[in-house]
Computed example of a mutant assay.
Amino acid sequence: MGLTTLIAITLCCIAWSLWIRRVTWSSRWEFAATLNIALQGGAVLLMSPWASETLGAFLYSLTGKWNLEDYIGHDLYIVAASAVVYNALGRLQQDHELQRSFKQYVEYPATLCIPLLLVAFTLGNGAKIYKADFFQVPTDFWLNMYWLLLCGTLIYLLGYGARALLVLRKDPRSRTVANIYLVSSAAGIAACLVRLATAFIPQLQAVNAGTALTWIFACMCGAGFAITSAESWRKKTRWFSTAER
């Protein structure tokens, strides 16, 4: 399966999920899950070779920096992972405790990471060397620090969310959704680990399999969250419809 096909399938899954969940934007309990899907879709789109060849070239003409669209996409991933945590915690904690935990353990680290990423991105090869696939940009010290910050933050956020999901799965009503969310989170963590390995081990940078694995796991993460969230909402709406009869 080519990269273009993989990205297209993932974006179709996300678009379908957003359509199914289109009424949830105003729902307090469902907003975070829908936001996560939308942000992951935006991230996949911005990281795609198509975006690099079009939007990336346009941004370079304005700023003199390559691959800015990828940096923006990575920022969206951080916010998406934060939304996963918020969605899980929202089903376990009361409002005050939720806001306190989220701000301390999620919002602060994520907010700090984004400007630090920009510094590392600007100083390193990320902004200097153009590649249609940003994963193929050869790393230097600053780009390695960029990947370490990004992947480390995403692993932390997804792992934090997974802790809450492990509690949720004890409830039989939430077990199926929680299990698939856990698999999707694991895929996201796997994508980060593969990316770190290929960034810090120079011999692996010339191997296309590393880049392919990163994309596969990242798309599994996005599609998994999207499909599960859509099916979860469809079940809820069917239950509401049955209850009204």
Rank of each mutant, 00 (worst) to 15 (best):
G2H: 14
L3N: 12
L3T: 15
L6E: 14
I9S: 10
I9N: 11
I9T: 14
I9Q: 07
L11M: 12
C12Q: 06
A15K: 06
W16A: 13
W16V: 15
W19T: 13
R21F: 00
R22D: 06
W25I: 10
W25Q: 05
W29N: 12
A32W: 08
L35R: 04
N36S: 11
I37E: 00
I37Y: 00
A38L: 09
L39D: 02
L39I: 07
V44S: 01
M47F: 08
L55Q: 04
S61D: 11
K65W: 12
W66E: 00
N67F: 02
L68Q: 04
E69N: 14
D70N: 14
Y71I: 13
Y71W: 15
I72P: 04
I72N: 03
I72L: 11
I72H: 02
G73Y: 01
G73H: 01
G73A: 03
D75M: 13
Y77I: 15
Y77C: 15
A80F: 02
V84G: 03
V85H: 03
N87P: 07
A88P: 06
G90F: 02
R91Y: 07
L92R: 07
L92W: 03
Q93V: 11
Q94M: 10
E97H: 10
S101C: 07
V106L: 02
L112D: 04
P115T: 08
P115V: 06
P115H: 05
L118H: 10
V119E: 00
T122K: 06
T122D: 09
G124E: 01
I129R: 01
I129C: 04
K131N: 11
F135A: 12
P138G: 05
P138Q: 04
T139L: 01
W142V: 06
L143K: 11
N144Y: 01
Y146I: 05
Y146T: 07
L148G: 10
L148I: 15
L148M: 14
T153E: 09
Y156D: 03
A162H: 04
A162C: 10
R163N: 08
L166V: 12
L168G: 02
K170C: 08
K170T: 14
K170V: 08
K170M: 11
D171G: 05
P172N: 05
R173H: 13
R175L: 07
R175N: 09
A178F: 02
N179P: 03
I180T: 14
Y181D: 07
V183P: 04
S184F: 01
S184N: 05
S185T: 13
A186D: 06
A187T: 12
I189V: 15
A190S: 15
A190K: 01
A190Y: 01
C192A: 14
L193T: 12
L193N: 05
L196M: 13
I201K: 00
L204K: 07
A212L: 13
F217R: 02
M220S: 11
C221D: 05
C221Y: 03
G224F: 01
F225R: 00
I227M: 04
S229W: 00
W233T: 04
K236L: 10
T237V: 12
F240H: 11
S241M: 08
T242F: 12
A243R: 13
E244G: 08
R245G: 08
